[in-house]
């Protein structure tokens, strides 16, 4: 029997520590009880990642997503995309801003205030995940502020790039604002070398 803890389990634990901090920061900012958790992290070949992500896009997001994406380079290279079902975002943003709006909630029209709100949330969540990872493996990761986009009829091809990144870290994010739940997905594309560096560090730290 293999007593070693799997790399996925270690990453799951690391990222949950990170999003736990993000939840407490967001709770303080919007003055509401917030829960954030990542049930599991998967390290997938790009073809498998596409299958998993397409399931999410079809079943949860129904084709339209609001995406907060950040590229990072320097010692580690890659791109993080944080996806939310676009039709749920008006309600989600309203909850964050303590507001209600008259327009239909499931429309895909967003204004600059909506984009800025998601930009801040994306920044907090990604900071927490990447920050925790960077601290643990002791490799600095540099990135800019997230770019926000709304994409309709989108497929996994848009987020998983097998040419530049052969392996993908995939996880789902359960976001709960005072009982209202929203399911996000996080896709981290990384160069093979970057992921290797991370996994080797993790192996050394946790499994000797």
């Amino acid at each position: 029997m293999n007593n070693k803890i799997s790399r996925e389990d270690i990453l799951t634990e690391l990222f949950n520590v990170g999003v736990g901090q993000a939840a407490s920061t967001l709770s303080e900012i919007i003055d509401k009880r917030i829960g954030l958790s990542i049930p599991s992290v998967q390290i997938l070949e790009s073809s498998l990642a596409k299958i998993e992500l397409n399931k999410y896009l079809r079943n949860v997001a129904e084709g339209a997503v609001m995406v907060s994406s950040i590229s990072f380079d320097s010692q580690l290279e890659g791109k993080v995309s944080l996806l939310f079902p676009a039709d749920k975002m008006h309600h989600f943003i309203d909850l964050c801003l303590h507001e209600t709006r008259e327009e239909p909630e499931n429309s895909l029209e967003f204004n600059d205030i909506d984009f800025d709100t998601v930009k801040e949330i994306g920044n907090i969540v990604v900071n927490s995940i990447i920050g925790e990872l960077s601290n643990t493996i002791n490799i600095p990761i540099e990135y800019t502020l997230p770019e926000i986009n709304v994409l309709n009829d989108v497929s996994a091809e848009h987020f998983v790039n097998p040419e530049d990144y052969r392996l993908v870290l995939m996880m789902f994010l359960a976001f709960d604002i005072e009982g209202t739940e929203i399911s996000g997905a996080i896709v981290i594309n990384m160069t093979l070398k970057s992921l290797d560096d991370i996994l080797n560090k993790i192996d050394k730290l946790y499994n000797g």
């Binding site: 919007i30 930009k119 801040e120 920044n123 900071n127 920050g131 800019t144």
Partner: peptide, 17 residues
């Protein structure tokens, strides 16, 4: 503190603050 240590930019929106 995070910015001083890691150098990654932070953003606060007018809507939330």
């Amino acid at each position: 503190r995070g910015l001083s240590a890691g150098g990654n930019p932070v953003f606060f929106s007018a809507a939330m603050h």
